[in-house]
Design a protein around this nucleic acid. Structure first.
Lengths: 229, 229
DNA sequence: CGCGGCCGTCACCGGATTGTAACAGCCACC
DNA sequence: GGTGGCTGTTACAATCCGGTGACGGCCGCG
């Protein structure tokens, strides 16, 4: 089962080189030479990953990235951005415009392939469906949609439950409000990021003592802190 | 993918020798014979590194360096300075803006190529979006937003953390206050550059012993000093 | 239709954070 | 050894940020 990789670049030479290297590495490359084609290709072909040049004619890479993220059909596909300058990386990664990794030009195809492997492995691992999350006296049963604190069943609303689940799955790593809005609420409606605070408050209130796992990282976001179960 | 190296010298002989050696080492050399051409070449060609003679007709090397550093398009490109006398080197590295390394004339091309390799490796390492930075007893975990010094968790504010992260990522290269303001605080904020000093102090205070990695370069800015992890 | 639960938004507050000024100490250079 | 500029240090006020309480809209349900 070969993974499809969509490569988006306006330079035919770059496409050819990358295509060859990707085949060599056991992937099935598909191509797009501008932003519009990239979007339709992503929707139709459902590639496992997208390599996206930042500099594109008409629609630039960041815009493409945003559009891909907005569409539920393509929102989950990881994106590696190609940037000409390291200085642009802040915009790509920092501003949370949705790229998962980036490589600065000029790059070695070998390095890019390595990044692709790594990112695909990461996504696969993150998808790993663990039904039962346990941390000390906090138990989260995903299929049953039930939370137990010290054996007591706690009734959470859908939003609260998803918020807790996502934080618990990504335990240890800080999640920004934007990230949480994207993953808990979905990207459809532009929602005030302060709303996250309110739901955190309600969540903390309900789970009582177990709220100690939910840390606030001032100026950044929230973090679930617990030893591995 | 070959890295472009811009060589700036007013002696054609030197250009020829260096060009040959650089090709031999697998780089793509491009040339400029005076300061003005060097600046336009740097902007247009985006070389991965610049080798810059200090003694140039009209605009001298230091001036060129300053101009390059001032332009966001070229500010990130590392510069190796060629100086006739060792005595000038302290001005190059210490007092004046921005060279990342220097070689005294007469030099062996082999040595210069070695320096180039080393500097490029350093810059590339700084670009890596690795999550975990480790230097001796200092550990920086970006996704966790956590810093450990000798195993002890240190609580940093968002600004302090970003400042430390950026310095650590660009380890070995001096960062001017202006650059730090741009990259830590963002481009649009009109902030007094002395503010950086205060945050550096707070940072040093908090990380205690690990503050030895944070060097002050008088008249220029700050530098994170550590061997590659 | 009324009701209650859920959700998003707002306003306010207290405290942490941060930018700045002022001053002191140090360093390089003369 | 003096001097001027640069950096470290301290203190303080302004600002920012997140917690909290309250409110109104929406929706499903009886």
């Amino acid at each position: 089962m070969k993974s499809k990789i969509l490569v988006v670049d306006d330079e035919p030479d770059a496409l050819e080189v990358l295509g060859f290297k990707l085949k060599e590495a056991g992937y099935t490359p598909i191509f797009a030479k501008d932003g519009a084609r990239a979007i339709t290709a992503a929707r139709d072909e459902r590639p496992a990953l997208i390599v996206l040049d930042l500099m594109l004619p008409e629609i630039d890479g960041l815009e493409v990235c945003k559009i891909l993220r907005h569409d539920p059909a393509t929102a989950m596909i990881p994106v590696i951005m190609l940037t000409a300058r390291a200085a642009e990386m802040d915009r790509v990664l920092g501003l949370e415009l949705g790229a998962d990794d980036y490589v600065t030009k000029p790059f070695s195809p070998r390095e890019l392939v390595l990044r692709i492997k790594k990112l695909l492995a990461r996504v696969k691992a993150a998808d790993e469906p663990v039904a039962q999350l346990r941390f000390g006296d906090l138990e989260i049963d995903v299929p049953r949609h039930q939370v137990l604190v010290a054996g007591e069943s706690i009734v959470l609303t859908a939003t609260e439950f998803k918020l807790l689940e996502i934080l618990a799955r990504r335990r240890g790593r800080v999640q920004t409000r934007e990230r949480l809005l994207q993953d808990v609420w979905g990207y459809e409606n532009p929602i005030d990021s302060r709303t996250v605070d309110t739901h955190m408050r309600r969540l903390r209130e309900k789970i009582g003592g177990a709220a100690r796992y939910l840390e606030t990282i001032r100026g950044v976001g929230y973090r679930f802190t617990a030893d591995a179960p």
